[in-house]
Design a protein around this nucleic acid. Structure first.
Lengths: 302, 302
DNA sequence: TTTCCTTACGCCTATCGTAAGCATA
DNA sequence: TATGCTTACGATAGGCGTAAGGAAA
């Protein structure tokens, strides 16, 4: 089989239609160039050039082969470049997990910023609850995860990227909708649509803690994994719910959001990654988020 | 720069993830294979494989490069095949000239037959009058031409492919339209739309010859290059015309065709080609037409 | 201890350059 | 006769195989 050097020889001769000039361009003498082209023709199995002692021209086969030779050489050069860029983390594919609510504001902002700085990194988004993301990191099915802070498995590191208040979501006609700000005891005995203890563990535990000191807790109804499902139930009048402020971006009719009288009613999001990740592009993106990226003002960690 | 052999080495290792097995597959020993892959990594400028003394796996860069390596090797193999097929005349591009009337029946029939036998030959059609085709052959701007028999320039050979009668085209309301068969003297003094002496030389000379022995020739009106234009004038009632029978395929309303009482009122078409053509596909197609192809029955040379 | 990738080294093939051959304008 | 491609041939760089080295299970 021929090799790339022979293709370069052939292309030079085809461009110049003159062995002498082609040889000069390749920084070699004519005789070995002639020989390489002959070897190429033998390897390909057909004549590519028609020579007289005074002129050189392409045969039909040579003309067809010339186009392919150019394509092959170009592809080879681009392949090396792509590999270098991938190795250095300036190109590649990064699978990013995110929780549904984080997607409303955080992810679009991140994608826009990252695409501008690293146009050759493909970001593949995958919506998953936090616990699934941590498992995904462990299995290396995702490279980065935007998760609610949970006890992470070993080898997974994290960085706080977002902080926002928890708010009360109530049906518009509910008496509490009239209050400017809600105290925990206002919810005594109220039906409260609750997060699942397993899949929505972060919010579940946080809400239980908020009511921990209260003598009269609310009445928990349902246990649901995701915020948008919870808000759908609030909208249907099933009860109130305590959800992150980002839930407002869903713009559900007949659901109003009210702040809570509690300084610790906050929800954070961490960026998580495996310490031993073998994806340079993921490391680049992670460094970008940790060191240079500013989330939207409403979500900024103070 | 790396060469194709190194790409093959890398692909084998990437496939097997084992230098020993890869070396066996390449019919060589491990050490030179290791060395080739190292050289490739050095040439590309980044690590492609991650080795421990017990395992081999692709880096992100290696994974990206693998896809390109497969593409390059595949392209190289197909390029050699394409060149061989082009050289042998089984693939390529053939520019075929044809006169407009030949296009009605002859060309579609030829294209269908040729495409079946030589699927990798691209036939590019170019409608030109016969004289332009002969010039095109000389300049090598066309490979083959379907022309009316004319005195060809040197180095151009020909083969008769089609023969059809000349007929009289008359406006439907013209008295001659009622005749089953026309004698030349029936046209005495009639306005006859005529071919151009330069661009429609074959028909011009033929028609002049048909009337050569007649005491009362027709009255020639206009001198036009192409049959379809002539027939448009007949349809407009300008006069009659003597045209090849294929003109009937235009299906012009208010124009009827009548046979002539003359055995020598025939129009031929020749396939023409340069003897020294350097296009193997053209030679293949030419041999196909000359040796194997049968034109439609109405045009067959008896 | 075995497996398996790398390094070391000698042999040999293959490429390069110089020199000569040969065809054409 | 000059140009420009090919063939011939000796020197050398580079690839292959064998042998030895070294790390991990």
């Amino acid at each position: 089989m021929f090799d790339l050097a022979q293709l370069r020889c052939f292309v030079a001769v085809a461009d110049e239609l003159h062995f002498g000039r082609a040889a000069a361009r390749l920084h070699m003498t004519q005789p070995p160039l002639s020989r390489q082209v002959q070897l190429l023709e033998h390897a390909v199995g057909t004549q590519l050039l028609e020579r007289t002692s005074r002129s050189v021209r392409l045969t039909a086969a040579g003309s067809a082969f010339y186009d392919d030779a150019i394509a092959i050489i170009g592809l080879a050069e681009r392949a090396a470049d792509t590999a270098r860029r991938t190795g250095s983390g300036h190109a590649g594919r990064v699978v990013v997990g995110y929780t549904a609510v984080a997607g409303y504001v955080l992810i679009p902002s991140l994608l826009a910023a990252a695409a501008k700085v690293f146009p050759d990194i493909d970001i593949v988004l995958q919506e998953m609850v936090s616990t699934a993301q941590l498992q995904g990191l462990e299995e290396a099915s995702i490279d980065l995860g935007f998760v609610r802070p949970l006890h992470a498995v070993g080898g997974v590191r994290h960085h706080r990227v977002s902080r926002e208040p928890l708010m009360l979501a109530v049906p518009a006609k509910h008496p509490l909708a009239a209050r400017a700000r809600i105290r925990m005891q206002d919810l005594a005995g109220e039906p409260l649509v609750m997060y699942s203890r397993s899949e929505g563990k972060y919010f579940h535990d946080k809400i239980v803690a908020l009511f921990g000191a209260t003598a009269a807790p609310p009445r928990y109804v349902h246990h649901i994994a995701q915020t948008h499902t919870i808000l759908a139930l609030v909208r249907a009048g099933i009860g109130c719910a305590i959800v992150p402020a980002s839930g407002q971006h869903l713009r559900l009719e007949n659901v109003v959001f009210r702040p809570l009288w509690r300084a610790d009613a906050i929800a954070d999001i961490d960026l998580c990654w495996r310490e031993d990740s073998r994806n340079p592009a993921a490391a680049t993106l992670r460094r970008f988020v940790v060191e240079r990226w500013k989330p939207p003002a409403a979500l900024r960690v103070r």
